[in-house]
Design a binder for these strands. Sequence first.
DNA 1: AACTTGATTGAAAGCGCTTTTATTATTTGA
DNA 2: TCAAATAATAAAAGCGCTTTCAATCAAGTT
Lengths: 343, 343
Amino acid sequence: MAVTIKDVAKLANVAPSTVSRVIANNPRISEKTKQKVREAMDELGYHPNFIARSLANQSTRVLGLVLPGSASTFSQNPFFPTVLRGLSEGAHEKQYALQMTTGQSEEEIYEGVVQMVQGGRVDGIILLYSKVEDKVMNYLKERKFPFVVVGKPYKFCEEITHVDNDNFRAAREVTDYLLELGHECIGFIGGDLNLVVTVERLLGYEKALRDAGLDLKNEYIIHEEFLREGGREAINELMQLTLPPTALVVADDLMALGVLNTLDEMDISVPADISIISFNNVLLAEMSRPPLTSVDINIFNLGNEAAKSLIQKVENPQDPIKRIIIPHEIVKRASCSKREKNA
Amino acid sequence: MAVTIKDVAKLANVAPSTVSRVIANNPRISEKTKQKVREAMDELGYHPNFIARSLANQSTRVLGLVLPGSASTFSQNPFFPTVLRGLSEGAHEKQYALQMTTGQSEEEIYEGVVQMVQGGRVDGIILLYSKVEDKVMNYLKERKFPFVVVGKPYKFCEEITHVDNDNFRAAREVTDYLLELGHECIGFIGGDLNLVVTVERLLGYEKALRDAGLDLKNEYIIHEEFLREGGREAINELMQLTLPPTALVVADDLMALGVLNTLDEMDISVPADISIISFNNVLLAEMSRPPLTSVDINIFNLGNEAAKSLIQKVENPQDPIKRIIIPHEIVKRASCSKREKNA
DNA sequence: AACTTGATTGAAAGCGCTTTTATTATTTGA
DNA sequence: TCAAATAATAAAAGCGCTTTCAATCAAGTT
């Protein structure tokens, strides 16, 4: 068995409570005893037991992470490791650890969260996604358990602390940019419509077109949580239209890469024949051929701010609801060009 | 305060110890009382407190994860999310949770591990990398704390349970494949030489060349933990040689993508002018232009087996040292072709 | 009828820490 | 000089659970 507070107490000739106070650096202990106790701790190689501490304090200094269930989403998209790093650094600064729920199905994830929360395993929870309808979020909200979401809550947006980009505006800007380049037939390729981020980006795109006095065409909008598969036919159909789009807004770099490949196979050249702009600006965007013009959403900060604000909320339950908007920026590369007006 | 075992006991009119036994489904409790207690639990919405349980049991059912410090390595390489998923599923099956250390520098990570271990936060540790010299690994080994490493330990390989591919063999096979295609000038582009995986792959490459009776040329071997930057010049130099290589073994898909781009810029065509084969076979490999021939190392399984074997070791300390080799497979795509013999 | 025995359940101690409350030693004030 | 205030430390209770050990009771033995 490891060395405990009692062992230290015995060696230092003080009571366990005194040792505890020395650990907490309580000012009511004289410097002399502190010194003595610290020496004893060093001599024995004492390390406080976190579990015992958690039990006594009713707090664990652990934050729970809820990842999207969809395996491929998580494991292929560089978004997650990056946001994780942001979270991790934010947590580490304040000496918090991160714990993940694990589970495949929606139901398993929910169960995992309940265990974390009711089992007292974590002090707060970070949701790394925002769905249109989410059992987990509802549960946390009902229970008034401290949590933040990375993304924009679909409902009760004003009542839930969240960290997000202004995806609506970003999508508008992106579309405006294409409009400025002279494009009028602009398509949208989005992901899972159950994800709020997809919805927001779609709305921004539509708004920009409407503001420009253009009609929205349903056939220009494709939705699919596709990476390679399904996507191919979708693109095919899109390009087969009598008036195919000359530019595309794609909701995610990874998807854009898929689109790029499909177009390449179809011998459609980017940006000469069609311009592409996408979101997230992960390393891939820079490494594709042609390099993608993409919206940098500052993924790291998204995570970092989420961790920080959750910790604040955990340590001060009175902390007000917050909405933190992380700025974005269009990074122009080589996938967009002026529309050649030959029609 | 949440509902505790005492509340349940009171409502069910039994002793707390009985409730505890019902939770553990102890056979010494009659079905009748079990029923009664379970009803009380349901009525109160009881959830056992994990922390208290951990303290009493001296076990947390949490596995600690140690990620490589280098931020970019982790956050850009799809290897990690995938291995994480494997770990996560393996852990979930046995009802274990995953906790991450966080920390930037080597020293911070080490401190984090010590806290996890000595603080009793975790029952076992998974190292997600293997370095040539690693303080963390030494520490765990000395302390005889249960751990497994994903990768091959550099030292004490026989004394440490690990899950790995046979990277040496894979590299040999890959090189042989290029030799069979008629290539004789084969370069190697590897990552950080402090990582054992790099070393293994390099050795395999060298062995294959030697076995084929070819000389090893130092100028054909490039090492750099490069993604874009530095790499570009390295490739440039390589191709500037009087006898530039006609094929490249690249230690990682992401790197290969960088190489591909650089070559594209230099107007060197793959595979016509130079063949490329790389490792890991992440989604990217399939999505690059041309699609990369790559060694599928079964990343998911790497993680999955690591979790399983660690849990076994945790639950049965007598469990023998194991070395689990995950099979690999060359996935042939379009980045390699026969050498045109015109020289 | 007294005595085991086996099956259930309860009481209590303990996991390692924090914190409230009590105790002792040391000053201080008049 | 002695009570009162202050500082420093110790003792004990409690966090929510598990588990050992003791207690009870019905059933089987002799």
